[in-house]
């Protein structure tokens, strides 16, 4: 199996393939980062997890199509940037806030950074959406699965049904977002 095979497996596959990569390079990465940056055990693991998530995101978003080096070199390259960024943003002995870091990573990628409060409201709306809608739109927008793959995984009649369902789920999410936004607005008005 070549390095580009791994990339294409992750692109077409899902969680399990990612898990295989995680296990494969874990020991070497943790050893390297501990030695090179004197990170604690917990910090090294947190950084490795962020590294793997960016690796996955780069493949899924089409930023990484073909590797010119090895998976290991690529992962260590990401890791180096993550650890530098973490060390720059966090105080030396503060535990890494992975969720905050991931949010900033996503937002930095946008041409216009979204409003912090709107981001939180959208998160609440998504939480209220429920299953299978949440899973469906996550598979489509995050995992970049095709409608054929989604209809098979979630047992829809055909890809067309899955697509219709995805549109309905997004319409419902927009509605929930607007409701949540006006509710929050009313609460603020009421307080003042």
């Amino acid at each position: 199996m070549t390095h580009n095979d791994i990339i294409s497996k992750i692109r077409s596959g899902g969680q399990n393939e990612l898990g295989l990569v995680y296990a494969e390079y874990r020991e070497e990465f943790l050893r390297w980062i501990t030695k090179e940056y004197h990170c604690s055990d917990d910090d090294s693991k947190d950084i490795y997890q962020l590294t793997i998530l960016i690796f996955y995101d780069n493949i899924k978003q089409g930023k990484l199509e073909n590797l010119v080096s090895s998976v290991k070199t690529y992962l260590f390259g990401i890791g180096k940037n993550v650890v530098r960024d973490v060390l720059r943003k966090e105080k030396r002995y503060t535990p890494i806030n992975q969720e905050k870091w991931l949010k900033e990573y996503l937002v930095e990628d946008q041409a216009h950074a979204p409003d912090e409060r709107a981001f939180d409201i959208a998160g609440i709306a998504l939480g209220k959406l429920g299953q299978p809608c949440q899973r469906l739109i996550e598979m489509f927008y995050y995992e970049k699965k095709s409608m054929v793959e989604i209809s098979e995984a979630l047992q829809f009649k055909n890809p067309e049904t899955a697509k219709n369902q995805k549109c309905k789920c997004m319409a419902r999410l927009r509605k929930l977002f607007e409701e949540e936004r006006s509710r929050t607005q009313n609460t603020i008005n009421h307080v003042y």
């Binding site: 991931l102 946008q110 979204p114 998504l126 995992e143 997004m170 977002f177």
Partner: peptide, 13 residues
């Protein structure tokens, strides 16, 4: 754009 961003964030989570 915001909703898709939050979906991706949830996916990463």
């Amino acid at each position: 754009q915001l909703l898709i961003l939050v979906i991706r964030y949830q996916g990463q989570h």
